[in-house]
C-alpha cells in the first residue's frame, strides 16, 4: 500500500493563534437511523463514545462521534485503524439501513490553537462562534468552502474540510490568524 500522507503534511502557521494541519486523522461517515440501538452499539465499539445529540460531539477512549445531520455521524478515529473500524461497523450494521464509509483521505483537518481561536474562525464563518462550547459541533462554511468545526477545549478549535480545498482553508485560516489582525 502506498504511504499515506495528509493534504498539507503538517503545515503550520504562527500568528496570534497557531494554525496547524493536523496530519493523518481517521474519519468515518456513518449514515443510518441514529435512534437505533445497533447504530449506538457500533458507534460505542468504534469510538467508545455515546451517540451525540443534535449539534453535539461526544468523546470516547478511541475517538469522537460528531452529529452531522439527523441521519449522519462523523466518527473520528485513529487513521491506521479506520479501515478495520469500517469493516467491523459494516458487519455489525449489515441488517440495518445504514452505510459506513472511510472518508479519511477525502478530508483535511486543521487545529487552531490560542485564546482567540473562536475569533479567528468567526472572521470566516457566518456561524455564531461565541456560543460554541467544547462538546458542540457546527457544520457551516468558512469563506467559500463548507467546513465543520468543534472545540477540543476553550483554546483549541478543530476544523474539518475537504482535502481538495485544504490549501485554501490553510491560507484563509492563516490570514485570519495573522498578527495585527486582532479584533479586540
Amino acid at each position: 500500500m502506498s504511504n499515506a500522507v495528509s493534504a498539507l503534511q503538517g503545515a503550520s502557521f504562527d500568528g496570534y493563534c497557531k494554525v496547524d494541519e493536523a496530519g493523518l486523522v481517521g474519519m468515518i461517515t456513518l449514515r443510518g437511523d441514529l435512534s437505533s440501538a445497533a447504530v449506538a452499539k457500533a458507534v460505542k465499539t468504534a469510538t467508545g463514545a455515546d451517540i451525540p445529540g443534535q449539534g453535539e460531539i461526544t468523546e470516547g477512549v478511541k475517538g469522537r462521534a460528531g452529529w452531522m445531520s439527523p441521519d449522519e455521524l462523523l466518527l473520528i478515529v485513529d487513521h491506521a485503524e479506520a479501515p478495520n473500524v469500517v469493516d467491523a461497523a459494516s458487519k455489525a450494521l449489515a441488517n440495518e439501513h445504514a452505510l459506513v464509509v472511510n472518508v479519511s483521505d477525502a478530508r483535511a483537518v486543521f487545529r487552531v490553537t490560542g485564546a482567540a481561536c473562536r475569533e479567528v474562525i468567526a472572521k470566516l464563518t457566518p456561524a455564531d462562534t461565541s456560543v460554541m462550547q467544547p462538546g458542540m459541533l457546527r457544520r457551516t462554511r468558512i469563506a467559500q468552502i463548507p467546513a465543520a468545526f468543534y472545540l477540543e477545549d476553550d483554546e483549541t478549535a478543530v476544523l474539518v474540510c475537504f482535502r481538495s480545498v485544504a490549501q485554501y482553508a490553510f491560507d484563509i485560516l492563516s490570514d485570519a490568524a495573522k498578527r495585527g489582525g486582532e479584533v479586540v
Binding site: Q54, G55, S69, P70, P126, A127, D128, R139, T140, R141
Partner: peptide, 12 residues
Amino acid sequence: PYCGVMADETDL
C-alpha cells in the same frame, strides 16, 4: 428545523 441552529442566507 433539523440542526436547530440559526443559519444565515449564505449557509442556505
